[in-house]
Amino acid sequence: MSSSKMPGWKSLPIGAAIINPPTSLEYKTGTWRTFRPVIDQEKCVRCRLCWAYCPDGAVMELEKEYVTKSGRKYSITYEINYEYCKGCGVCARECPVKAITMVEEGG
């Protein structure tokens, strides 16, 4: 809750203006999550659909090499940014090869 360390009405910009964008990055929405998406890098075919569908831009496309057990080599890897992922599950729902599973947090 409100703390005495937070700025008071005398120092805050008027009209509740946010004058130092992009402050949304400071808001770690990952704390909202009850289920986390986990990507199975073996099943993932790098189609980019999860990246495109994620409403929060929390799917990261990384230039990180990955070689599957069967020897298929990818130059990119998709990972979830858990600081911002709200756990909505859209990625898991849209994944055409069912490479993403929703795992309960704290379980």
Partner: peptide, 10 residues
Amino acid sequence: PNWYYEFKMQ
């Protein structure tokens, strides 16, 4: 609730 009140005070 952490912020609204201060703006009403202003």
